[in-house]
Structure formats: C-alpha cells, structure tokens
Design a protein around this nucleic acid. Sequence first.
DNA 1: GGGATATGACCTTGGAGTAAGTTACCGCAA
DNA 2: TTGCGGTAACTTACTCCAAGGTCATATCCC
Lengths: 214, 214
Amino acid sequence: MSRANAGTKGVPRADRELQIVRAACEVFGTVGFAKASVAGIAADAGISKPLVYQYFGSKEGLFSACLTHGAELLASDMERVAADDSVGLERGLRTLDGIFRILEPQPWLWRLFFDRTAPESGDVAAARAFYTDRITRLAMEGVGELMALVGDDDPLDVSAMTAVWMNVVDTLVTWWLDHPEVTPSQMTERCYRLIVALSGAEPPARIVADPAVR
Amino acid sequence: MSRANAGTKGVPRADRELQIVRAACEVFGTVGFAKASVAGIAADAGISKPLVYQYFGSKEGLFSACLTHGAELLASDMERVAADDSVGLERGLRTLDGIFRILEPQPWLWRLFFDRTAPESGDVAAARAFYTDRITRLAMEGVGELMALVGDDDPLDVSAMTAVWMNVVDTLVTWWLDHPEVTPSQMTERCYRLIVALSGAEPPARIVADPAVR
DNA sequence: GGGATATGACCTTGGAGTAAGTTACCGCAA
DNA sequence: TTGCGGTAACTTACTCCAAGGTCATATCCC
C-alpha cells in the first residue's frame, strides 16, 4: 500500500478519454497549445499525467484529438447548412447562426482550429489539413457563388475573400467571447444588421424566427 | 585570452539595439512570442544572448521594444490617413493601402500586435494598451462614420464591426503573406474589387493612381 | 584607469515524457 | 461460492532537456 491512490476506479477508457478531451479543449482553446501544460490538463480532468500519455501518447496526440473533436462538430454543422438551398449572404448568415449555437456552451472550441502555436507537422497538421479542406471547400463554394453574382470571377479574389470570410467568423466569435452576456440569437441578429450595413441591400430573409428576442 | 571572442567591437548601443529589435521583430512576428527563443534571436542578430539581456532586461522587455517599434510605424501612418478628408469605404481603402506599403518589406510586423501568446501583463500589456487605444480610436471613428451613414448607431454593433474591420485587415495581410508575388498596389486594387463585390455600390474613387499596374 | 561593449560558461526552472509498481475488475475452473 | 490469473485502469516518483536568466571575465576606446 505504498502508492496511496493507485489502482483502477472502474471508469472505462472511452469515458475517461472524453473527459480528458473536454478538459483539454478548454485549456488548449483558452491559453493555446504552447502555454498549456499536460499536468495542468490532467489535474483539471481529475486524473494524473501518465494516464493522459497512456491514452493519447503525447501532448501533440492529445491536441490532435481535441482538434478532431471540435472540428467534427463544426464541420458537420456547416455541411448541414450547405445542404439546404440558401445562397449568398443568407447562407452566410445561416452558417454563422449554426456556429454560434454550437459554440455557446464551449466557445473556446473555435480557437483550437486557429492556434498558431500548435505543431505544424505530424498528426496535428494532418487533422488540420483534413478539416481545413473540408471547411474551406464549403466556404469557397459559398463565397464563389456570392462573387459570381456580382461578376467577379478572379480566382485570387475568391481566395482572398474566402480568407476574409473565414476570419470574419473568427472575429465575431472572438468578439462574442468578450461579450458573454450576448445570446446566440442576438449574435445572429447583430450579424444580420452588420451585413445590411455593409451591403446596402437587404438580405433576402431573416434567419431567426422571432426578432423580438433581441 | 581564454574568452576567444569577447570585448567591444565598437558598435554603439543604439545601433545594436536597432539591429537586435529588427531581428527580434522577424522572429516574434513569424513564430510568435511563446515559440521564439532569445538565444535564437541573438544568433540571428549576430551577437550573444547576454547582450540582449543587458540591453532589454528580459524576453518580455525585448518583445515590448519590438511591439513599440512596429506599432509606432503603423499607428502614425493610420493617423496620417485619418487626417485627410476621406470618409467611409474610401478612408478604409486608403488605410489599407498605407498598411500594405509599410508592410511590404517586413510583413511580420503586423503579427506582433495580434500575438495571443505574448504576456498579458507588465510592459508588454501597457505598450499594447497604448497602441490598441490609439489604433482602435481611429478604426472606431472610421467605422462609426460608415455605420452612421446607413443608420446603425448601436454602440455594440459599432464595436463588433470595428473588431471585424481590424481583423479583415489582419486577414488580408495574412493572405498576402501567402501570396508574396503580389505587390502592394495590386493588393489595394484587389481590396477595391472585394469592397465593390460586397457593398454593391461603387466606392467614390480609385485609390491607386494607375490601375494598369495590375 | 574607467566605462562601455561584448562573450563563454554556468545556474535554474518548468514542463514533456517514462519506469515501475498498485489496485480493481472479470472470466473461469473446481 | 470461492480462489485465481490476466488485463485494464491508475498513480508516485522519477529523468531529461530546452530555454530564460546570470556571473565573471575580456577587449577596446578615451
């Protein structure tokens, strides 16, 4: 009985993994890969560091799992929006609305994807490349439609505009992080107003059922 | 003669400091504060680590000097643009043009300002707060004018839109980093087209003297 | 000689990763 | 039902290294 606290507690691996990933997502998403410590994450998850290594192999492996966890949630929602028949700014708004709703209980998920301190090779890079492809494809498609509507077909223009669009989403999420009292519906309404202000023309339809929620 | 290479080389402190700051800006701006190593920066600058500490006190002090160096360049240019009489999208375009021209030989300067791995207290925070104020004031003023023109006076909307604007600049600079063959003039022209595509209406005037440069 | 410029070698610490052992659960033979 | 090996879950207590920071000393100019 020299090791006071060792031995299994009967928690199956899958459960523990999820528990660890959840804690890790919050830490990685909040302070970034470079500043996060595995020991700290283990403590947050209520277990010890070696268990993390046993299940995920390395800090990088853990981050990779987090990235996949978060990106899967977001990408699948974006594909859901892309599958319906909205186009142009309306589709943009619907995408934003979906993102805001997913991110409400765990806003830090978003940052995982844009963490410049994360490794740029290995599993992490592979996971990121996979989801970047998946997400950029959707964004490029939406932005391309929009630009074609106004007669700009220059591929570099579309590329730059896609980058702008994706970072506008990033910015709005970040802004939201600084204004936690704002609800997802309010964010969507706000985006609607901003788009109206920018584009001059009214987008085709309101996205949120009840504007009174504002 | 045990220390092979010691002793002054006759370079005055001010010159060395600039030399070190320049090397540090590139490293900090490229890999971020957290991943940058002081020894590496010293090597890039062609001097030894203790000299860096003698002149800047700490890694944080060095970063702070870099931040001030870069932000001063950018802020003063933005104030130059603000001082002339353009408004709305035209002012936005002129601001972008100035930024692109400054950043052409040293694009990494931009990143210094948005580095989330930098310390969040002490000198760095103070310097950042100083320039954030200065720059945000200008941006908010410009964005506020634009939004007032279309009848949106909600202060939170203006706040969110200002965040979007500043990050659009960030995105365009980042996109440019990935397309190094593009000149500053071409970037400004591209931004002109993107704004036209988004806003529907033609902005008042072209910014770049000779569109043929495209 | 004194002060500014400069460096190699060192100290220190935080954090990634590991070795080795501990406990609990589970299937199975008697 | 009990005993028992095998395996999965779990921890303490390390090792090791990169990188921030310091010390003592060296060279040059006035």
